[in-house]
């Protein structure tokens, strides 16, 4: 075999592809499930925390900032390991899917909270004043005037952050969530061939390129007044 054949055999082996593609596809389904669950929970929780923070309740805000800083500082992998391998020692065993979902949701929530919060702070004081001067209370002003503007403003950074964090679904491989990377790694060790890993990469590209494009579309969609 010449060099090219060796390379093609290692990364583009048709027999290995045929054998393990179904596993990779099953992994894609799992990745999509975890990713969707994380996006929905993480962004909702982040928005809720940012909204709560704008009430500026002293003790509550301290807790929010504490949570946010911790989860932005920690590598998600260590939290996943800690929860998955640590909690059973105190009698709490969570399925691996749940651990991955909860931990990534919390991480996304922490980042999303900061992004939404900076969006809320960026809304001019005049918007609050105009709404309050018509008799809207604080919560109504937040819900109908401030958050809709803040959320639109935060679509680009939020999209980037969401993509970055949902890619961390690959960390599920270390605790046995049968997502793309787990499937690819398993197939790679059974076949002794790197083709499954390449298939895994292609699977991520197939999943996330559309998300990147969706993000770009959202940015234009949410431009002022042209709904």
């Amino acid at each position: 075999m010449n060099g090219l054949d060796i390379f093609l055999d290692a990364f583009f082996n048709p027999a290995v592809t045929a054998k393990y593609l179904p596993d990779i596809l099953r992994g894609m389904v799992v990745t999509v499930q975890v990713a969707l669950a994380v996006v929905v929970t993480g962004i909702s929780l982040g928005l809720a925390l940012a909204a709560l923070r704008s009430f500026r309740l002293p003790g509550v805000n301290l807790l929010i900032v504490f949570f946010v800083d911790i989860f932005r500082a920690l590598p998600p992998l260590i939290v996943i390991l800690l929860v998955y391998f640590g909690l059973p020692n105190v009698g709490i065993s969570l399925p691996s899917f749940a651990v991955l979902w909860v931990v990534l949701s919390l991480v996304l929530a922490a980042f999303a909270e900061e992004i939404f919060w900076s969006g809320i702070l960026a809304i001019r004081k005049g918007q609050w004043e105009a709404a309050r001067s018509t008799g809207l209370n604080f919560a109504q002003t937040l819900a109908h005037v401030v958050l809709p503007q803040a959320v639109r403003m935060t679509v680009p950074p939020l999209t980037n952050r969401t993509i970055a964090i949902t890619k961390n679904t690959a960390l599920g491989a270390v605790i046995g969530v049968p997502e793309i990377l787990m499937q690819a790694q398993t197939a790679q060790s059974f076949s002794g061939n790197a083709t499954p890993l390449l298939l895994g990469s292609l699977a991520y590209i197939a999943l996330f390129v559309p998300v990147v494009i969706l993000g770009r579309w959202l940015e234009t969609r949410f431009a002022w007044g042209r709904a």
């Binding site: 001019r124 918007q127 004043e129």
Partner: peptide, 13 residues
């Protein structure tokens, strides 16, 4: 008590 501001403060969305 109606209020009108120098910078209008209409809701842009």
């Amino acid at each position: 008590i109606g209020m009108v501001f120098q910078s209008f403060n209409l809701y842009p969305h």
